[in-house]
């Protein structure tokens, strides 16, 4: 049972609207990129098989809406995450400043048992734009922030050119694996050896 559970690694991607969360996921999973901006609604995931130390895992990558108005059902899907990826656009100051909010929001909502050591990975995306000339957040500044939050691994990426995406997700997968999941140990009140029948019938037939 434990082994089956550990074959699945759940990763959540968070960040401001338009920083390239969907593009990063699409580049990593499908090796595709589109320049067009398309907002994401709600949250959904794509999966990808990854090999870590000769073992095969399924990476479940949750892409989320950066715009709050497209997150109407709340964030119940944070539950059970093994790693949280925080993305910002190196050309947009505000998206970097908001990383803190995303991180804190995640820790509050997902409430992992050991928030100090919960694995995050930060990605500074869109380093390709204008040959780097429109960049406003320096690598140094980003790394300093990551260091101050418990040495969060940091990658500079370009979803458009596929630069560093593979390496970033490799790190994400490894960190997700290191995360000790909260064992939702469940012990039934009575263990019915015969395979207890507990029919609960309420409401209509559907």
């Amino acid at each position: 049972m434990a082994s089956r559970r550990r074959m699945l690694l759940k990763v959540i991607i968070l960040g401001d609207s338009g920083v390239g969360k969907t593009s990063l996921m699409n580049q990593y999973v499908n090796r595709k990129f589109s320049n067009q901006y398309k907002a994401t609604i709600g949250a959904d995931f794509l999966t990808k098989e990854v090999q870590i130390d000769d073992r095969l895992f399924t990476l479940q990558i949750w892409d989320t809406a950066g715009q709050e108005r497209f997150q109407s059902l709340g964030v119940a899907f944070y539950r059970g995450a093994d790693c949280c990826v925080l993305v910002y656009d190196v050309n947009v100051q505000k998206s970097f400043e908001n990383l803190n909010n995303w991180r804190e929001e995640f820790l509050i909502q997902a409430s992992p048992s050991d928030p100090e050591n919960f694995p995050f990975v930060v990605l500074g995306n869109k380093i390709d734009v204008d040959g780097g000339n429109s960049r406003v957040v320096s690598e140094k500044k980003a790394k300093a922030w990551c260091a101050s939050k418990g040495n969060i691994p940091y990658f500079e990426t370009s979803a458009k050119e596929g630069f560093n995406v593979e390496a970033a997700f490799e790190c994400i997968a490894k960190n997700a694996l290191k995360n000790e999941p909260e064992e939702d140990i469940y012990l039934p009140d009575t263990i019915d050896v015969g395979g207890g029948q507990q029919q609960r019938s309420t409401g209509c037939e559907c």
């Binding site: 969907t22 907002a39 609604i41 709600g42 809406a65 497209f70 997150q71 109407s72 709340g74």
Partner: peptide
């Protein structure tokens, strides 16, 4: 109903992602 809206809207997102 308003809370449920993204379940419906998600389909449009899926459509937009179809290559």
């Amino acid at each position: 109903r308003s809370e449920l809206r993204d379940l419906v809207g998600k389909n449009l997102h899926v459509l937009s992602q179809i290559e």
